[in-house]
């Protein structure tokens, strides 16, 4: 079993519902976030192209943040979900330095925090909060080891990319182009 997310950049409108839904669901403090939305604009007026992406921890298969963690606080849980155990974390910041996506942050309490793929919801058979709320339904979440899951199906028929593949982390968030 391998959880992953696919996000359709053709449909995403950058509304940031995924960001606020995450904050509300996961009690993320004001001034912090586990996911965010970027926009890239290429070209010169009036020949323009944009790409809007909802980004978060990529739950990398080859996760440097887990490797460099001196205490095992950063670890890989079932389904490949990368998690941080607060009471094991010393706040050394090594994992923050190691993440090519800058997906982690130092929680006001001192430990490191980041996207959990909403493990508490997934465990209860629900979609992550950001996926469930997205008004354009442009996010797909599920088990990519299962060829019949929605995400496997959509990835079969669409072109996709991952972010910074050259970083060698084997990210598990796929952007459908």
């Amino acid at each position: 079993m391998r959880y992953a997310m696919a996000i359709d950049v053709k449909k995403c409108v950058g509304c940031s519902d995924c960001v606020v839904a995450c904050q509300v669901e996961n009690n993320v403090h004001h001034g912090y976030c586990r996911d965010w939305v970027t926009e890239t604009i290429n070209g010169t007026y009036p020949q323009l192209e944009t790409e809007i992406r909802s980004e978060r921890c990529n739950h990398c298969d080859n996760a440097p943040c887990v490797r460099c963690c001196p205490t095992g606080a950063s670890h890989i849980a079932d389904g490949g979900i990368v998690l941080v155990t607060a009471r094991k974390c010393i706040g050394c910041g090594a994992c923050i330095q190691s993440c090519p996506y800058d997906a982690r942050y130092s929680h006001p309490d001192g430990h490191v925090d980041k996207c959990t793929f909403c493990a508490h919801r997934v465990e209860a058979g629900q979609q992550p909060a950001c996926v469930a709320v997205c008004p354009t339904s442009c996010m797909y979440f599920g088990d990519i080891d299962n060829p019949y899951s929605d995400i496997s199906q959509i990835m079969k028929v669409r072109k996709w990319k991952v972010l910074a593949p050259e970083a060698g982390t084997r990210p598990q968030i796929f952007y459908l182009l």
């Binding site: 940031s16 001034g31 965010w36 939305v37 970027t38 800058d102």
Partner: peptide, 14 residues
């Protein structure tokens, strides 16, 4: 070329 955060990523020191 313009690259920006539409929202979020306000985490301190990142």
């Amino acid at each position: 070329k313009e690259e920006l955060f539409l929202s979020g990523r306000m985490n301190p020191n990142i």
